[in-house]
């Protein structure tokens, strides 16, 4: 395997991962504050449409991206009003929103379908892009890669190293204790929900303005939001691990495309759906590893002990068991 091929492979994985990283980071912030935003898949799709339409209207892809982020925050605001202020079931509202946003995106985007439009283009930073292996993969391609990597750092720093991030984690871990401590729980949750939605919206913009440019019915990013939701669980609600999870799923997609040339007998649709069984399998493995039964077994069988997660990890306290409730 030549160095050029390896660089191209890294570039392809980072490129495919960029929107997944943003969407999963957004959901991480939201769930860390104790709000499960199931509308993510619809948010990504609707924001993709809004971003593309706005980019065409203003002829500026960056304004389009901003519009996508705003659209994502708007949908999250609907969830926040219903779930946090009116006290409706977040799961039900989120799920309805995801279906609604998908249909709304196709309906409102009818005029944008298969139209040419601006995209985010490509970076070419001097010096940096000449670095071996990662230079061209990060600095001489679409700016979305750099954007997503910077976002990982920012979200990690915010959640883990700032006072505001500590408040967010406290609110999500033990809302009752946070109330007793005098923290504005609902306001924090609402703001995190908005921030998470905005990141999901940006992810949609990355799809329609760079990764899968353009709009159509289907657009091509359907299901990405669900993958991102699973990635958050897979990454144990930790920003850096979540980003690694996104890279893992992007690698599967890229491997599918690469394998298509090697094994032309298998149809392309099968590779498109490959991430979904992998999603189920990873959730199965991750959740079984965290289960009490597995810890119990690991105590008796020596080699299994290495597979037990070292940190307690797991879901933020406020959302433990939330998925087990009905509508």
């Amino acid at each position: 395997m030549s160095l050029d091929y390896l660089t191209a492979l890294i570039a392809a994985v980072l490129f495919a991962a960029a929107p997944l990283i943003l969407a999963a980071l957004g959901e991480t912030i939201s769930e860390r504050a104790g709000v499960i935003n199931l509308s993510l898949d619809g948010t990504v799709l609707f924001a993709a449409m809004v971003a593309f339409a706005a980019a065409r209207a203003t002829d500026n892809p960056w304004l389009g991206l901003a519009a996508g982020g705003l659209a994502g925050a708007g949908i999250a605001a609907v969830l926040g009003v219903f779930g946090l202020l009116l006290g409706a079931s977040e799961l039900a509202v989120g799920f309805v929103l995801t279906l609604f946003c998908r249909e709304l995106a196709y309906f409102m985007g009818h005029g944008q379908a298969r139209q040419p439009g601006p995209d985010l283009g490509a970076l070419n930073l001097p010096f940096l892009s000449d670095l071996p292996l990662f230079g061209p993969a990060i600095f001489r391609q679409s700016p979305v890669v750099l954007l997503s990597l910077v976002a990982v750092g920012l979200v990690w720093f915010f959640l883990m190293r700032t006072r505001a991030g500590l408040v967010v984690r406290a609110v999500g871990e033990a809302p009752a204790a946070a109330v007793a401590r005098g923290l504005a729980v609902t306001r924090t949750q609402f703001l995190c929900c908005l921030a998470g939605g905005a990141l999901g919206g940006l992810a949609g913009g990355l799809y329609s303005l760079s990764v899968k440019p353009g709009w159509g019915h289907p657009q091509g990013c359907e299901g990405a939001g669900w993958i991102a939701l699973a990635i958050v669980i897979f990454g144990g609600w930790k920003p850096v691990r979540v980003a690694l999870g996104a890279l893992f799923f992007a690698a599967i997609q890229v491997a599918g495309i690469a394998l298509q040339d090697v094994l032309p007998g298998l149809s392309g649709t099968l590779f498109q759906i490959a991430p979904f069984p992998v999603m189920i399998l990873t959730l199965l493995v991750v959740n079984l590893r965290r289960s009490a039964a597995f810890r119990e077994a690991a105590r008796r069988v020596p080699l299994l002990g290495r597979l037990v997660p070292r940190t307690a990890g797991g879901a933020p306290g406020a959302i433990v068991g939330a998925l087990d409730k009905g509508f």
């Binding site: 309805v96 609604f100 998908r102 249909e103 709304l104 309906f107 019915h217």
Partner: peptide, 15 residues
């Protein structure tokens, strides 16, 4: 128009 309007109406109504 896109036929997805049905889904839009359904979503709005449930919300």
């Amino acid at each position: 128009l896109d036929s997805s309007l049905a889904g839009v109406v359904q979503g709005v109504l449930v919300l």
